[in-house]
């Protein structure tokens, strides 16, 4: 369960150029939800993602993740939270270059101090869940296609069994077809494994793959609606 309560974020507070990116945002995300956070650039959705991803703390307000208040933690405590509870998928993939698929997925477990054997087992399981074929496990990340790279990144987000998978414009660098495949992967994880997925995007048709869409504009929530016409990712193309 994720609870955001009156969260504000001000950059460079106390200076002349102080900028309030979030002006009191509140919402709750239940376990197993697939939420899209939508908004144009400059709307504050990235700031919200950073706070939800425990990369940053809010200037005021509460952020409760899994019953734990994350809003006032230190850098190292935030790192702990990210390690245990958050899985990131980035627009620019951010896989380690010249490193095999398997090792890339195992990286979060390295920091979690898990031993080598179960690391590999868990990485393989996550890769299978993300729809990767076993023949690619030994490939280096620069030998894969864009869609495959993003699925490896999803597997990496999955591997530490997080409370929340946070995807920041995951289809932004992909063409429509591979983007559909990636979105289909998120839907599958959400429906079959009950994963909580938060998708940040500025594209309406991407957002429509989620069950709930939160619109943000100028640092405040504009609308929060459950999508009744959830768009099924086309896996056939």
């Amino acid at each position: 369960m994720i609870e955001i309560k009156d969260v504000t974020k001000t950059y460079s507070p106390g200076t002349d150029v102080a900028f309030q990116a979030l002006k009191g945002v509140s919402f709750t995300i239940k376990d197993g939800e697939f939420v899209a956070i939508m908004g144009p650039s400059g709307s504050g959705k990235s700031t919200l993602m950073h706070i939800m991803g425990a990369l940053d703390t809010p200037s005021s307000g509460l952020y409760i993740l899994d019953g734990k208040d994350v809003s006032t933690l230190s850098d190292d405590e935030l790192a702990e939270i990210r390690k245990d509870k958050i899985g990131f998928v980035f627009q620019s993939f951010n896989l380690l270059p010249r490193t095999t698929v398997l090792r890339n997925v195992m990286l979060p477990l390295v920091y979690a101090g898990i031993d080598e054997r179960s690391r590999e087992d868990r990485a393989k399981k996550a890769l299978t869940a993300a729809g990767m074929n076993e023949t690619h496990f030994g490939h280096r990340s620069n030998e894969l296609s864009g869609g495959q790279i993003q699925r490896v990144a999803i597997a990496r987000a999955l591997v530490n069994d997080p409370t929340l998978i946070l995807a920041d414009e995951p289809t932004g660098n992909l063409d429509t077809r591979t983007g559909e495949i990636v979105l289909g992967t998120f839907q599958k994880l959400n429906e079959e494994q009950g994963r909580t997925v938060v998708l940040i995007t500025h594209e309406q048709d991407v957002a429509e793959h989620a069950t709930r869409i939160i619109h943000i504009r100028d640092g405040a929530i504009q609308s929060d609606s459950t999508s009744h016409t959830k768009r099924k990712a086309r896996t056939d193309i």
Binding site: G53, L55, D75, D76, A79, E80, R82, K83, D84, F88, F90, N94, L96, L107, P108, Y111, A112, R156, N160
Partner: peptide, 8 residues
């Protein structure tokens, strides 16, 4: 990235 996935 390393920091994002939990490196202290």
């Amino acid at each position: 990235l390393r920091k994002a996935i939990g490196a202290k």
